[in-house]
Design a protein around this nucleic acid. Structure first.
Lengths: 341, 341
DNA sequence: TGCCCCTGTCAAAGCGCTTTGGATTCGCTT
DNA sequence: AAGCGAATCCAAAGCGCTTTGACAGGGGCA
């Protein structure tokens, strides 16, 4: 069923039918109802392609997922972010188009989206230091919102981020308050901006007490269970083993827990763990009560909000850059306790 | 840059330029090169909307992600499947459009995709017993491929699946061969078809030895770490504790491991674990050597293949239903050993 | 030389929609 | 009765592309 047929059935012109459906004022309420009814009955939906060709708006937003050939990792938080963003898009009648490309082609993917005209804007994932995508998107003139921030970017841009620095500063302070002095940081990849900020928060909290971060207790890697296990195991075997761990994800925390338990120590009594928790839907930090003490911030909610920001930008391109800084909650679980003496 | 401008710059008609770029034979090699060169120089990409309006093909495939309000879980294997499928799409010049909808609206989402004409086909995720989506998609006439199978579907359809039954049958036999008699099955949600098949494999292996499955040793739930931990902990505390566990995902296995270690037993010596491993990129079963004995099948590869199947169907709608059954590898790790006596 | 058939090119129609710029009707006022 | 807005509705253009059908020009053949 298309506009033409529908208008013929109704004995109206395409113009009138179109206006009726799109809420224009110059059509009487009576015909509007008649049209709406017929549209429903025939299950009519305007063809997206034709509509966006006519309007110039694609009614879709893009997400580029780079896959590297080196370490083919699909960011685990990605699924939840997408789910959140998708909710917002659906409600607003927007489509979400994903483009999976080798990371070397990422820049090209954005240019292509613009040239092909199949999206009105994009969300930028996983910003790094001096991220190249920001000037690029400015140049090609595609509205965008960054999930996270890119330290060193000279151009203004819209972003939504968790206050990673503050979160890790608080988490570290908590451990210090509990008497811990040797605290290990198992960070995410420090090519990522968020990891740098977390580290900064960690170091700031130590400095505030006149302590200095021990390089031997700091690691940076892809956030896997194996990484947490290996790093913790190694650190725990030294004479100057840490009494507490601060980890960048639940998965890493799980690895640390395993290593700790292997030594026969008990979590929360002998060794404390604080982790960041993205509240992934399929990987919760406990069902009702938290298992780990954590800095908590829902990445799904971040997706919803970032999508909202982007749609606003698309609706009003003149809008200045917007920023949204989410604070992580600090939830206390049984994985932390006073430092053993 | 659009076709019109490009053809004006070249002093050619739009027809010729279009044909040159699309590889039609009736244009001389000389002009083809000239056109291709100019297109590259001006970074020309045909506008997707206009093109698909003209051709009638959307050059996109859809994935519907239902989110339930009850248990808002985004399937963790989803990200990797999408990544795999996305690779195939990208290479073939197709877009991937995701639609995140409340699960009550899933049927509507498919109908809408068809009516809006923004996809040429869809992939159906997570089929259940007598899945309603299969007759629905037949009815609305949208090409589709199912990832998994739907027992009880009366209409023919194309699918790609892992031989879950066989995998779990082998895994169970392995444990039986090692002398285990009390084997627990921590299955996924048994509303899912794959879980039913895994269970069938498990039971068949037991029956083949004249054993019967003990209901007390079988659980079915969303595959989380907490679930694995709670179930194992409970089972291990009984007089008739199992000596081996068969789990549906690495995450669940992790939970089991935690529970086992809490009792002071050792994995692989006192208690054995075999798990299914989807080879998720962000959650590997060991880096080089496996940590768990596992039935292994890459869900990412499944995504690549399923996407390929769908594209083939789209290219030739007359194609009969196709099936592809992938065998899981059985990899032996240190998590299994002879039953303690 | 004349005819035919390729080869290479083009103009124009059409995909399904929105939107501009009229046209028509209707209800009132004067 | 004529005139005049306001309220409705419509024809047609245009979005950027593909594709049909036609047309020049040139080489081969008799």
């Amino acid at each position: 069923m298309n506009l033409k047929k529908l208008s013929e059935t109704l004995g109206l012109s395409q113009t009138t039918v179109s206006r009726a459906l799109n809420g224009y004022p110059e059509v009487s309420e009576k015909t509007r109802l008649r049209v709406a009814e017929a549209a429903r009955r025939h299950n009519y939906r305007p063809n997206t392609r034709a509509r966006s060709l006519a309007t110039g708006r694609a009614m879709a937003v893009g997400h580029v997922i780079p896959i590297s050939t080196k370490h083919e990792i699909v960011n685990p938080v990605f699924a939840d972010f997408i789910a959140g963003a998708g909710e917002t898009y659906s409600k607003a009648g927007y489509d979400m188009v994903l483009s999976v490309v080798p990371d070397a082609d990422e820049a090209r993917a954005y240019a292509e989206m613009k040239a092909k005209g199949n999206v009105d804007g994009v969300i930028v994932h996983g910003p790094q230091l001096d991220d190249r995508r920001i000037p690029l998107l400015h140049e090609i003139g595609l509205p965008f919102v960054v999930h996270g921030r890119a330290t060193g970017a000279s151009l203004p841009y819209s972003w939504l981020d968790v206050n990673n620095r503050h979160a890790f500063e608080r988490a570290t302070s908590l451990l210090l308050d509990l008497g811990h002095r040797r605290i290990a940081l198992l960070n995410g990849l420090e090519t990522m901006d968020f990891a740098l900020r977390r580290r900064a928060g960690f170091e700031a909290a130590l400095r505030a007490r006149g302590l200095e971060a021990d390089p031997a207790l700091m690691r940076s890697a892809e956030m896997t269970e194996n990484y947490g296990h290996a790093a913790a195991r190694e650190m725990l075997s030294t004479r100057t083993a840490p009494t507490a761990f601060l980890t960048s994800s639940l998965l890493v925390a799980l690895g640390v827990r395993r290593a700790v338990e292997e030594t026969g120590s008990r979590i929360g009594r002998d060794v404390s763990i604080v982790t960041h928790d993205d509240e992934l839907s399929y990987f919760r930090n406990g069902d009702d009560l938290p298992v780990f003490t954590a800095t908590r911030s829902s990445v799904r909610e971040a997706g919803r909000l970032a999508a909202r920001m982007l749609l606003d930008r698309i609706a009003d391109p003149a809008l200045g850059p917007q920023h949204r800084l989410l604070e992580a909650a600090l939830v206390i679980g049984p994985s932390t306790g006073p430092a053993a003496r």
